[in-house]
Amino acid sequence: MIRAMLTAALLLSAGMAGAQAINDYPTSARADYVFVCMATNGQTREMLDRCSCAIDQIAQILPYDDYVRAETVLAMRQTAGERAGIFRQGIAVNEMIADFRRAEAEAEILCF
């Protein structure tokens, strides 16, 4: 009986750890995405649902750390000056942005 309870507890905690790994985006990051998405696409209930769906899809594809890196690179690419040039070129940077764009495209297909 104790063995069965321990096994059940281990399985439950393993399942929760797996869910947390997939759902590692903080609520504030999801909300920021939805706010920007709605500002771009319209302030309607339909857009709230679609934008929420989009960030959920992106979160299933990209780990949060990769999402943050891609967002940072995209923001830095808009900065003028020589120092921001490092964010505009390079294989690793371009692959990071390509992964982010693919996740966004898949989210758009599924949600919009």
Rank of each mutant, 00 (worst) to 15 (best):
D99K: 05
V68H: 09
E108C: 04
A98P: 01
Q20S: 09
A80Y: 06
F100L: 06
R88H: 06
L74S: 01
A105Y: 03
Y33K: 08
V36S: 02
Y33C: 06
E71K: 05
I86Y: 11
E108R: 15
I91Y: 15
P63L: 05
Y33E: 08
Q57T: 04
L62V: 15
M76D: 08
D24H: 03
D32T: 12
M47E: 00
G90V: 12
D65Q: 09
T7M: 15
M38N: 09
Q57C: 08
M16L: 15
M1C: 03
N23Y: 04
F87I: 09
T40R: 10
M16I: 15
N41F: 00
R102N: 12
L11G: 14
L110N: 15
V73I: 15
I22Y: 01
A31Y: 09
E46A: 04
R77F: 10
R88L: 05
V73Q: 04
A75Q: 14
P26C: 01
N23Q: 12
A8Q: 10
L62K: 07
I86H: 15
L11H: 06
S52A: 02
A31Q: 08
A21E: 14
N23T: 03
Q20D: 09
P63I: 12
V68S: 00
E71L: 12
F87K: 05
M47C: 02
A103E: 05
E82L: 10
L6F: 10
Y67V: 04
V34T: 08
I61Q: 15
C53T: 15
Q43D: 01
R102L: 05
I109S: 12
G85L: 13
A103L: 14
D32C: 03
L62P: 09
A105T: 14
M1Q: 13
C37D: 01
A92E: 08
M76A: 04
L74A: 04
L12K: 05
Y67E: 05
G18R: 08
G90W: 07
M38H: 00
F112V: 02
E71T: 11
F87P: 08
A9K: 02
I91L: 07
Q20V: 09
D32Y: 06
Y25W: 11
G90T: 14
R45S: 03
A75C: 02
V73W: 02
E46V: 06
A107N: 08
E104H: 13
T27Q: 07
E106I: 12
D66H: 06
M5V: 10
